[in-house]
Write a protein that binds this DNA or RNA. Sequence first.
DNA 1: ACAAATTAGTTGCCATTGAAACCATGGTCA
DNA 2: TGACCATGGTTTCAATGGCAACTAATTTGT
Lengths: 164, 164
Amino acid sequence: MPAQPGTADAALKLEEFLPYRLNVCANIVSTALSRIYAEHYSIGVPEWRVLVTLGQFGMMTAKAIGIHSHMHKTKVSRAVAMLERRKLVVRRANRDDLREAFLSLTPAGRDIYSDLAPSALEFARQLMETVEPADRAALGRALNKLIEHAAQIASDIAKGGKPG
Amino acid sequence: MPAQPGTADAALKLEEFLPYRLNVCANIVSTALSRIYAEHYSIGVPEWRVLVTLGQFGMMTAKAIGIHSHMHKTKVSRAVAMLERRKLVVRRANRDDLREAFLSLTPAGRDIYSDLAPSALEFARQLMETVEPADRAALGRALNKLIEHAAQIASDIAKGGKPG
DNA sequence: ACAAATTAGTTGCCATTGAAACCATGGTCA
DNA sequence: TGACCATGGTTTCAATGGCAACTAATTTGT
């Protein structure tokens, strides 16, 4: 018997635990969204992010895409490779630094982007509409703070935890 | 050239896009948290969830754990298998239905739980403290609404999208 | 100018994960 | 009772993703 499952220390309840709730929320939302575009274009989340990032900025390096979209460089590399194979993205050498290359959407890529962006915005709009109007700004602020704080903690631990 | 990267349709900006922000937030928070316990106990998120769920309820089936913790049954199965190997969880047959089994923490498992739960709560508390006091309740409500709505959409699409 | 360190990007490898198939048991209903 | 369906749980398989090693190009320090 678990004694009293949780009396000792203010009771940890999974369903009220913020990190857990954030994960569940992000997963469900992300799944719902990707169901919408995965069927149409047969792309996954990383490809979608690359497409959207290039649609937003027009031309940039893989590294910059990774930073902007919070993706590991291997993820970016593979997503770009597949978009390139599908002729949705082109790579242009940077004559001033041959390690990197400038990436941009092809006309075909832009077509998909301009088809995909409005429905993404619409999805987000509908999602936001379910949140009480008075709570919307608070949600935005809260996410900012949480991201900022957690990133701080994670990097602190990364430094302190593995000395040498 | 990308014309104007986003003038046509209210501009999709990844860094302001709610599903994206939720994902980034959930990942960073989750990483920060797991850094804390992964080093101490060498367990991953699924094992942590099983442990916490059993700590909360004392005794339940794998299926119930999956429902409560939003995990796929294979994930639960594997997490339980590893916790069993480490003698942190025991399996007791249900004589009334031999398909399922009742799982619960061993004393060793409970020791870890009662060590781990307070630090998880402390982590969540610190996290929540970074959010403006006035925004905290709003965050909770918003997450509820988002989860509810997105789950609805996802299941609608699942049904409508794949008829037959 | 050149060796050493750094950086952009790719690839090989391995762990994690979900879908689907599978096994064993239990329920249904004719 | 016995043929069917449903359910809890495990296993197999393929895809995904991150780490670390690698290549090629650039920067730094002397």
